[in-house]
Structure formats: structure tokens, C-alpha cells
């Protein structure tokens, strides 16, 4: 997988490579240009002003912690489930795998409506929550649920790939040395799949953090930053909203880079 030995390093520039590079440049430009214009059209004083705005600050904080908490909470169930998917064959496994990918393909506003049916006061989950004295609608719990719904496939798929790459005979060897299956899972399977689990978690967190549609439907308030940006755009226009967007993007990028560095520092054990 990460074997660089067999990669052919081509230092000469052939016409085809040049053509592909030109196409690549267009794609990069497509991504970078809007972001660059966002940054260019936004002055430092404006940014400083926005950073002092309590509404903006609390929404960024809310977005960060709900997306992280959602990832960690759901990882507790997703990681063992991913292991099961990697190791066991069972009836209708193909169907289960398709279900896992559903949140990626359905429109997120539709996902929000679907979730609303479950977590609203008349829904099954909503009723149980009401009995326990809390609600999903308009609360961080609702935000987390919406974020997790649309982002959990990323963790599941990445962790499953990670577990698939762990040689089964290492687990068998551990069992024959007297380790219980749970111990084998915790001391052999998870550490060896750690990098995939971590990068899947980062993806899930990043995807959750950027979610708009599903969260908007379940919890307009308290306002996460994507919703805040949408609201300000409608109420005050592009110029006023731009600094908020820039600030949020910068914060997201900083977190993403830091986490990637942390994850990259711990190399996947070689096999």
C-alpha cells in the first residue's frame, strides 16, 4: 500500500504528463480561486472586529466541540462495528455495507428531515429523551446527532479498511498465546489499524464540522458557524458575512493541520 519501492519516479517531462499537470492546475485553481477571493476581499481590521464578536466566537466554539464530541461518542460504537465488518461474513452483509454509505448519497436536507422524524417530540428517540429530561431539537445533542448521521460513513469505511489490512494470523497468534478476544482486539487489532482509525476520525470530524443542511433542520439554534454564516448572508449581505467565513475556515484549517500532523507522527506499524 505504502510501498514506494515499486513507484516509478519519472523525472522527465513527457507531453502527456504536461497535459495532465495542466488539467490538475485547472482543478486546483477551481478550488483555490474562490477561497483566495474570500481572503483577498477581507481586511485585517474586519477580521479582528469579527474575532471580537461574541456571537461568532461562541458559534465557532460550539461547532468545534459538538463535531469532536460527536466523533468520539460515535467512534465507540463505530470502531467495533468496523472490526466486525472487516472480519466476519454474515447474511446480507452487502446490504449492510450499502446502508452504511447511504448518508453520503442522500441530500443532507433530506437527512435532516428523516432525523427530525425520529428525534422530534413525537419520534421514538425524542420521546425517550423527553422522559429523561432533555431534547434533541435546538440543543447541542441534536447538532451532534445531525453531524454524526452525515459523517459516520467516513469513519466506518476507513476503520474497516484499516482492520482489513491487519493480518489475521497475528490475531490468531495472540489468541494462541492466551489472550482473550477482547484483549486481542485492544492490543493487536486496534493498534495496528490505528492510523486508519485516526484518519477516519479526522475525516468524520471535519465532515461533521462543515455540515449545514441536516443541522439547520434539527437545530437552527444554538447556531453553529455554517448556520450563522447562512443567516448573516441573508440578513446583512456578502461583505458583512465574509470575515466570519474566513475566520471559520482558518480555525478549521489550523485544527485539521494540527491533527494531521499528530496522526502522521505515529506511523502505522509496518507489516
Amino acid at each position: 500500500m505504502q510501498d514506494t519501492k515499486y513507484q516509478i519516479r519519472n523525472t522527465r517531462y513527457e507531453p502527456l504528463s504536461l497535459a495532465f499537470a495542466a488539467l490538475g492546475g485547472l482543478v486546483l485553481l477551481f478550488i483555490v480561486a474562490p477561497l483566495a477571493s474570500l481572503f483577498v476581499n477581507c481586511s485585517v481590521p474586519e477580521l479582528a472586529e469579527t474575532a471580537k464578536d461574541v456571537g461568532v466566537r461562541s458559534s465557532i466554539w460550539l461547532t468545534l466541540w459538538t463535531s469532536m464530541a460527536a466523533t468520539m461518542l460515535f467512534a465507540l460504537a463505530a470502531i467495533p462495528f468496523a472490526y466486525l465488518l472487516a472480519r466476519k461474513d454474515f447474511p446480507l452483509k452487502g446490504l449492510v455495507m450499502a446502508i452504511i454509505d447511504l448518508p453520503i448519497v442522500i441530500p443532507h436536507s433530506a437527512a435532516g428531515i428523516a432525523l427530525l422524524g425520529i428525534v422530534s417530540k413525537n419520534g421514538a428517540l425524542g420521546k425517550t429523551a423527553a422522559k429523561m429530561g432533555f431534547s434533541f431539537i435546538g440543543t447541542p445533542a441534536g447538532i451532534m446527532t445531525a453531524m454524526a448521521f452525515v459523517s459516520i460513513p467516513y469513519l466506518l469505511n476507513s476503520a474497516r479498511d484499516g482492520f482489513l489490512a491487519v493480518p489475521v494470523r497475528l490475531e490468531k497468534a495472540a489468541l494462541s498465546l492466551g489472550a482473550s478476544p477482547l484483549r486481542v482486539f485492544l492490543t493487536v487489532s486496534v493498534p495496528l489499524a490505528w492510523r486508519s482509525i485516526l484518519s477516519g476520525s479526522i475525516l468524520m470530524w471535519a465532515r461533521g464540522m462543515s455540515e449545514f443542511g441536516a443541522v439547520l433542520i434539527i437545530a437552527y439554534h444554538p447556531m453553529i458557524t455554517p448556520v450563522l454564516i447562512y443567516e448573516r448572508l441573508g440578513a446583512f449581505g456578502l461583505k458583512y458575512t465574509r470575515p466570519t467565513a474566513v475566520l471559520f475556515i482558518v480555525v478549521c484549517l489550523v485544527f485539521l493541520v494540527v491533527l494531521r500532523l499528530l496522526a502522521g507522527g505515529k506511523n502505522n506499524a509496518q507489516r
Partner: peptide
Amino acid sequence: KMQKRKIALVFQNSTLFPH
């Protein structure tokens, strides 16, 4: 169960835990 058998198995290729 395998972990209770008191039988250890050594394979041809290493099954040492790489981490």
C-alpha cells in the same frame, strides 16, 4: 477456546507483533 488450550503455535513466517 483457543486461548485456554495451553497450546502454542509458531508459524513459518513471523507473527511477531510489529507495533
